[in-house]
Design a protein around this nucleic acid. Structure first.
Lengths: 343, 343
DNA sequence: TTGTACGCGTTATCAA
DNA sequence: TTGATAACGCGTACAA
């Protein structure tokens, strides 16, 4: 691997390195002639600017860090994140940014990763996906003035740049849908209990019950992780109850397919006749499972797009950053898991 | 955002920057005492080495580039890649590497991205996922001595570091399975026709037919992209034939669910009774679709793991690189799409 | 075991 | 519009 530097280009073009630099960064203060000449030489020598040197000099990496919460061990398996990534990528590519996937190195916890990639200046800014209660990553980023955008919500601060859906309202509507189908014994199966999205969806679920004068049964709220296995496991618990639920709201499709699997294996209950299922995120799983699952389309790709747009905007204008919160639409996609034959 | 440098640490610790540097890189030639003293100061000042400066000085980024083929527009939606990413990430995290997702900037084609991230020295090496016939990326990487590992195979070169399954054999076995179930009119629906994985799987399919003296029907080989919509569209074509297939081999689960969707919509044919389905990659889709789909488990996570291990090994030992090809096991997971009731 | 001094390849400042 | 020259923060011969 050769390594052509600015010096080489400068020498061959008969100009100084500053001139070459100006051509690279498309500076105005340069004559058309020299510009063309330099470009020609760059082409000829197959010159690419060294990004480390650039970053060192101008303090910009043109890289965005995507931070995945590691409390979901199988984060890389949940289609939700892939869709977010798709959205992010579509925007970064238009703005000449690359994406760094931040993952824990050995011995690091979540906050460590964040600190590392930010403090070592590997990235210009961060996109945080999902937040916890008293989220350390958010706190740290905020206190240290690190440019970031949150996909999700934060209870502690009001003025952080974020993109989210109205998960509470969505959960309310989703639960109401089940209630309107005549269900009264509705369980809520969630992932990580301290995740804000869980809390919000749980709250919406509770609101719906209360509004319809349905007594809240503590046995009906159980949580584990955002995993298929968690859904499977938790559903086993529910099936042990004397008073089994007749409908379940899942906080995530991945959980929901686990729940569904467990119900099928019981051979005693059918979806939706005996137990209705409703879920969140409307990933490809909900669309193709058997039966298909009613799920809230939270527009994951759009979440990724909006978040990265906001971040890049904030990075560009060095003035004060846009700390507003954007709420995207959601849509309940009704499918067979809540559809009775006689309807 | 503060910026503590080595200088600051050195000054406060009463040593030179080289000493600090040695502590950072865990150099032996240093006394325990000073080491501890420096570490203390680093801690106190919350020092992180600037990665651009490091890269510039030692020519290493500790970043691996993951190159996605953009001919699959929805690459970010195929669970296969997420599983590969999961595998890669599990290894990089143990070796203190980060992952850069390489995506096309505006106006760039696939080769451009590769050139850019390599030549600007954003990454130390590449993992290429899937290859085409006469793949320019592979050719370029090989000719320019860029450290890389291919997930997949390459027809043109024999000595490139790669990890793959025996896709031909797998396709042969998968097709034979259908033949053994009594099917004779077997179609093959594939993604990008120039992708090596498609070609290999097609070849295995052909071999199986020939070996069983089944005439090859040209109408039964159609291809588009590795997308759900492609499967849907192509299945529509097949349903127009007078002589419709009684079984279909799909080159990818995502395609297969599209195929399945189309068959269901026809309301005339059932899977597996009228048409059997068999597919590849054994993603979560195959497991949860209705009916569940027989699919070849190619061990995607393991592909990602092995590939990144090999790459990192090659990066570490500066001697000659390991250009061997590793073939991983596969396993046909039999599910309902090939299972008749009377079995 | 430690420090000095220079180089890594670029951008930025200042002067011309 | 251009060119010296000095940063940028770190690694590393080399010397001590």
């Amino acid at each position: 691997m050769q390594k052509v530097t600015m010096k080489d280009v400068a020498k061959l073009a008969g100009v100084s390195t500053s001139t070459v630099s100006r051509v690279v960064s498309d500076d105005d203060r340069i004559s058309q002639d020299t510009k063309e000449k330099v470009l020609e030489v760059m082409e000829k020598l197959n010159y690419y600017p060294n990004s480390a040197a650039r970053s060192l000099a101008n303090k910009e990496t043109e890289i965005i860090g995507l931070v995945m919460p590691s409390y979901e061990e199988d984060i890389f398996i949940n289609p939700f994140f892939q869709e977010v990534l798709k959205g992010v990528s579509s925007i970064t590519s238009k703005n000449s940014f690359d994406i760094l996937i931040a993952t824990n190195h050995e011995g690091e916890d979540d906050l460590d990763v964040l600190k590392r990639i930010v403090q070592t200046q590997r990235v210009d800014g961060l996109i945080l996906t999902r937040s916890k209660k008293d989220d350390e990553g958010i706190k740290y980023s905020k206190e240290h003035n690190i440019p970031f955008v949150l996909i999700g919500s934060c209870l502690e601060y009001d003025d952080i740049p974020a993109v989210d859906n109205d998960n509470k309202q969505a959960a309310y509507n989703l639960t109401s849908l089940l209630i309107n189908k005549g269900r009264r014994k509705i369980a809520f199966i969630s992932g990580e209990i301290n995740s804000i999205v869980t809390l919000k969806r749980y709250k919406g679920y509770l609101n719906a019950l209360q509004e319809h004068d349905i007594e809240v049964n503590d046995d009906y709220f159980i949580s584990d992780e955002f995993l298929e296995e968690s859904g499977y496991k938790l559903m086993s618990e529910l099936l042990k109850l004397n008073d089994k639920p007749d409908a379940i709201v899942c906080a995530d499709d991945l959980i929901c397919v686990g729940v569904l699997k467990r119900i099928k294996e019981s051979k005693k209950y059918n979806v939706p006749e005996d137990i209705m299922l409703a879920s969140f995120n409307n990933t490809i799983l909900a669309k193709y499972s058997n039966p298909t699952i009613t799920s809230v389309d939270i527009n994951s790709v759009q979440l990724g797009k909006k978040a990265s747009k906001k971040l890049i905007n904030n990075l560009n204008k060095k003035s004060k950053s846009d700390n507003s919160k954007e709420i995207l639409d959601y849509k309940i996609i009704k499918r067979d898991s809540t559809l009775l034959n006689n309807e």
